[in-house]
Amino acid sequence: MFDYLTYVREGNFPHIWCSGCGHGIVLKSFIRAIDKLGIHRDEAVMVSGIGCSSRTAGYVDINTLHTTHGRAIAFATGVKFANPKLHVIVVTGDGDATAIGGNHYIHAARRNIDLTVLIYNNYIYGMTGGQVSPTTPRGARASTSPFGNIEPPFNISGLASAAGASFVARGDVYHAQKLEKLITQAIQKKGFSVVEVLSPCPTAYGRRNRMASPVTLMEWLRDNCIPVKKYEKMSEEERSGKIRTGVLIDIEKPEFTEEYRKLVDSMQVRG
């Protein structure tokens, strides 16, 4: 059996996440991914922002940096640029990455700096008690949209693709083995890589939206997350309400720290 304890800070458990939260599944998928890749714990840095997702950093026995709300990608940019040998993984949530941190998110994608960003999308601000987020579906209830959300949601993956990310994938915590593969691919990719992970929040989202049971939420993921290949073969009608998962973007383009290194090399050759 796989020994997760090698990679976690046992003293910090039990974790703060509610029963039925999907975040622990992302944590385990991440651990299996770095184990598979043989990344040395000393050479990995996890940078997180603020929120339930960002508490992941406290549990992993690598270099961890728990920053300010929305700014994880900016801090991570500094870490990676200053020492490109480090594997830098950002852990963030839908509110953290696409509301308060939206600017850093799109610009890091545009810059194509070699970061791996795991975005736990639970459609809600969980830690602060269930306020509406940029990914809360239209009509869904939250503590600050008590009559149903009137705003349309962001497409997190679409945002990164449009901004220039070289790898974008979407996974979910029901399909945990597939999630591990997506995280592995994202870490391996040289360039800005995003894995949007649908990770349900029974406490703050489910209870307000007739999905209080974690099992119901898991079944919802099972029934609605459709692999890219299958999705492509579906009719418009069949696609309604379904979520495309898998690798959405995987392209080669110049990476920021590499380009800067080339610039420095050329200056030094010139003298």
């Binding site: 990608i73 900016a74 500094g78 990676k80």
Partner: peptide, 22 residues
């Protein structure tokens, strides 16, 4: 290493991240 960030907040964050590598 020089980087022009997307905003002042990001610049301060990047400086802290870089400093932590020494």
């Amino acid at each position: 290493k020089f980087i022009q960030m997307e905003d002042e907040i990001g610049a301060m964050g990047a400086v802290i991240g870089a400093s932590l590598t020494g």
